[in-house]
Design a protein around this nucleic acid. Sequence first.
DNA 1: GTTCTTGTGTGACTTAGGTTACCGAATTTC
DNA 2: GAAATTCGGTAACCTAAGTCACACAAGAAC
Lengths: 206, 206
Amino acid sequence: MNLQPIFPRFSPELIKHLVEIGQVVKFEEGDMLMRPGQYFKNSLLILEGQVKLYRDGDNGEEFFLYYLEKGNACALSMICAAKNEASVIKATAITRVMALAIPIQHMDELMKNHVQWYYFVLETYRKRFNELLEVIDQVAFHSMDEKLEFYLKRQFESLGNRIMITHQQIADDLNSSREVISRLLKKMEARKRIVISRNEITRVTI
Amino acid sequence: MNLQPIFPRFSPELIKHLVEIGQVVKFEEGDMLMRPGQYFKNSLLILEGQVKLYRDGDNGEEFFLYYLEKGNACALSMICAAKNEASVIKATAITRVMALAIPIQHMDELMKNHVQWYYFVLETYRKRFNELLEVIDQVAFHSMDEKLEFYLKRQFESLGNRIMITHQQIADDLNSSREVISRLLKKMEARKRIVISRNEITRVTI
DNA sequence: GTTCTTGTGTGACTTAGGTTACCGAATTTC
DNA sequence: GAAATTCGGTAACCTAAGTCACACAAGAAC
């Protein structure tokens, strides 16, 4: 697999080096890449597919945080790997996923010898940090209908204008209940923002 | 000022270097260190005092995120400074604050030449990332009374067992309303968790 | 002292959203 | 095909928490 188009900012030497020290791993749809309490031995670079990240509540609730896609790295796996800390979030593959696993013992050396790697790590943190802040915005300042709109917007952006999902799954992701989501979706449909079918929501793009 | 006890993990050489390239800056209580939209020219290391960080909502709401204290650095100032990105949060000094301002142009060099600096930066990110995730936990999974307990716990931990604050300020920090906070505080007092006086809440430590 | 300002307490009311309890329609399994 | 399962719609109800209105107490300003 050619990594250059996936990580356009990396120099050919860096890519060559990454391929040498890393190992390509494969996950099937539904596999859990990361579970709370787990320790990392590797930092993961996503080459293909999509990974959904959740925060787990104490009583089994879940809350959707964001997606990782081709060209992203898992910020947490980099931080926690470097510090040998346990994960506090859950990640599952929602498609088939190919990733490059970089053993943690190479992190220091990469950081030291490759400026682009260092920039990549910083940029990864910054993006995820901002993403978390946006999530906090939503839950702190907005009502359910606004959260739902924001949620769907992000789903459409990551997964395309037609997403296959049940109302129950949305309710779980937003830590709400199915009936509420159904009600609000109906209203959004009435306002011509979406079209609802069984297992499927389509964005109305005018 | 001797920095060694504030940053015990830094080598004497690193500290000497930081003092050379950095500049000690002073803020008075109430000063705003950082405002949304601002660009950073420096990364700030807190030497003395406390800084309160907020997320701003679109309609002027605020939401308390966390405190920075002696020995901490502002994760955002490091990321945003390095990437020349604008801030998305607000920071105000709640006491007199002394900080060491490190110009951004030194970041790369520090990262490259000082392992302890690199570890410090990673650790800073990790701590704040986890802190944000805890905040998300609270707002996503918990009701107002639980958020309030969590909020007070963090205040007590940072500011001591007796905090000077009005119900209105708490309501602002939690994006709630004064009456609700007063009601819930009464209940907490009835449960012997706190003692309420005008402008003041004291933790009951049994 | 009196007045003014700020902080707190409380009851009445409203509302978003969670819960319960159905029902029917679409799919899958047999 | 029939039966079972999954998904979505809807009405009635409940509750947390936001809002409104007002009263009162502690300090500050005069």
